[in-house]
Structures are given as C-alpha cells and as structure tokens.
Design a protein around this nucleic acid. Sequence first.
DNA 1: TGTGACATGTAATATGTTACATGATTGA
DNA 2: TCAATCATGTAACATATTACATGTCACA
Lengths: 180, 180
Amino acid sequence: MAGARQLTELEGCVLGNLKVLGPCTPYAIRREFLASTTPYWSGSAGAIYPLVKRLERQGLLRSESHATGKRRSKRLVLTPAGQRALLGWLRPPFPDWVVGVPPDPLRTRLRFLGALPAVEQTKFLADAERQIQFHLQAAEADCEQQRDDLYAYRMARGAVAALKARLEWVREIAGDVKQE
Amino acid sequence: MAGARQLTELEGCVLGNLKVLGPCTPYAIRREFLASTTPYWSGSAGAIYPLVKRLERQGLLRSESHATGKRRSKRLVLTPAGQRALLGWLRPPFPDWVVGVPPDPLRTRLRFLGALPAVEQTKFLADAERQIQFHLQAAEADCEQQRDDLYAYRMARGAVAALKARLEWVREIAGDVKQE
DNA sequence: TGTGACATGTAATATGTTACATGATTGA
DNA sequence: TCAATCATGTAACATATTACATGTCACA
C-alpha cells in the first residue's frame, strides 16, 4: 500500500468518466473530452492513451482485451484502488485553487486592456460581449439536451451561470468605458 | 519580419505586466504572479526566468544590466516588436477557448458527484459552499484594496462576480440534493 | 473500390512545476 | 551575527499538444 499520490486533474476526470460510463474503451472516454463544451482539454490521443497506460501500471484500472471481430479493442475497468484514488481526488478538503477564484483567459486579457488605445478598448469589449452571448446561447441549448442526465445537466447549468456572470461583468465595464 | 507566432498565456501576461509596470526587473514581474489572488500560475522561478530569456532571444524585450550596489540586476524593457506581440495576443478576434465556458476545477469535480455516497454528497456541497464564501469575502476585501488601480479593480470585481455565480449555483444543487 | 470515420498508439516538442544552488541585503 | 527575505538562475521531471503512423470498418 505505497503510492496513493494525488491524481492530476486529467487523471481524475478519466477515472471519473470510467466510473460514470462503466467499463468502456479508452476511446469512449476520449470522446467525452472531444465532445465537451469546455475546451480546456483537447482530448488528444497523445494525452489519453499514455495516461491510461500510466494508471494501469499503478493498478488504478485494469484493461481486458475485448476484441470485436478483427478489431483490437480494450475494455477498461476501474479497480478498487482506482475507486479509492477517485474518491481521494473528488472529496473535500479542497485545495484553495479548486474552490478559489477560477481561472478565466478573458479576465486575464482584460487586466491589460489599458495597453490598447481607447477606440480598440471599446471594440474589445463589444466583441467580447457579442461572443460571450453566442456561447451563452450554446450553453443554454446544451442545457436542454442534457435534461436526461442529472449530473451533466447541473454541469451545463454551471456553465450557463459562469457565462452569465461574465457577460454582466463585461457589460458593466463597457458602460464605464463609454462614460469616459 | 518572420516569427510573430502567437504568445502563450503566460508570455502574454509577462509582456502585459511589463507594459503596465513599465521597465522593471524579472522579479518585479514575478511578484505580480506570486501576489495574484488567482492561483493558476505559481510564478515559479523555473517558469519566469527561462521565459524571459526566450522573449529576449525573440526580440520582444530587451534587458539592460542595471546594477544597484553590488547586486546583479536586470531591467527589462518592452521593444516595439514586443508591443506588437502583446497587442496581437490581447486584441480580438478571440479564440473560442478564451470567450467560451471558462474552466473551473470545482465544476469538474461536481460532474462526478454521483461517485460519492449520498451522505458525502451533502458534505461535499456544504464544504464547497463554505469555502467559496470564504474566498468570496477575500475577493471582496481585495476589491476594496484595489480602488486606486482601475484595471486591477475591475479584475477583482470579475473575481467576485465569478465566485458569486458559483456560490449561487452550488446552493441550488445543494437544495436539489436535500430534497431527495 | 475507395473515402472517411473509428480506434489505438508513438515521437517530437513545448512548457510549467518542484527542488536546488548561489549570493546580496535587511533587520533583530 | 544570524536568519529571513530578496533576486537570479539551473536541473530533473511530469505532462499536455501537435503531427504522424497504422489498421479496421461502414457505406456509397
């Protein structure tokens, strides 16, 4: 019983998906990332397959070769140790960076808005507003489609909430800038 | 006029800080990251110093040796090419991942809440709520302290908005779970 | 019969993290 | 004078990205 190091975010997600989906192929997990509306991870093959191998070496999952026809295929299964690792990643206490101010690449850029000439500042904010609105609509549509999966639905609601808050915030700044 | 590749997020931040602070030492920039309320980048020496070297090689900044007393010291200066690179990073059009649903490690975890037994789900949500509230208070205090720097103040407001939205969202879910 | 999606993987590359090393300066 | 902090840097390491390689399957 050595190891038991903390999982990385991506590892946690992979184990979490394996738990939610039940035994499945690496590609099935990969598809979850590819289809995700949050584009933080690309779900690239170069990330998933080596990661799965890593977890297997550490005994957090087992792979049964499960050939269908002539096609080589694996079926991944979560082990008890994998279960424990997943819970350890998931459960409180949360590190500060998990519950604290979440990262936001647009907020990052807005920090340096002063580097742009005044005209471009207005354009920056107008463009941002328009595009957030676009993504908000997409998130709301996604919400409707997830009505059958309670947890996925809550995620979608969270995405909507985050985008709404950001939209309001950007509008407030746009108002400030126009007043000058 | 070759190069002109897009900057990474951290590179953009470093150039942005250099623009905002004016000519300064690498350490002064590093301190901005170390002091940041968003713990996304650690501001580790191993990230900043090699990055500065990289940008210097690419001609985006110049370093003048600026010894004070016996202490070796550099003063970094943004070059015209660095200015252009900064604007290219900052300005619209924004990639989808910049304006779309921002990443959030807590939301990520909530996706897999179903992996926890019911009792622990309640505790998860209660803990999350309490800790978000704590960080919200810190963000609001930070807001007050940034009143003198307009751009930093707006950032702080954005952080508050993000935390408030998340808090409300978590409370909603907690309400749902209790009803079961 | 061939084109594109499915599925698994590897290689080169980039970049951020921790940990370490070095020396200057400040203040108790 | 001793410790902590300032300030600059390097080395080992982990891990995600893009691009590539390979072969199967469905379908037009």
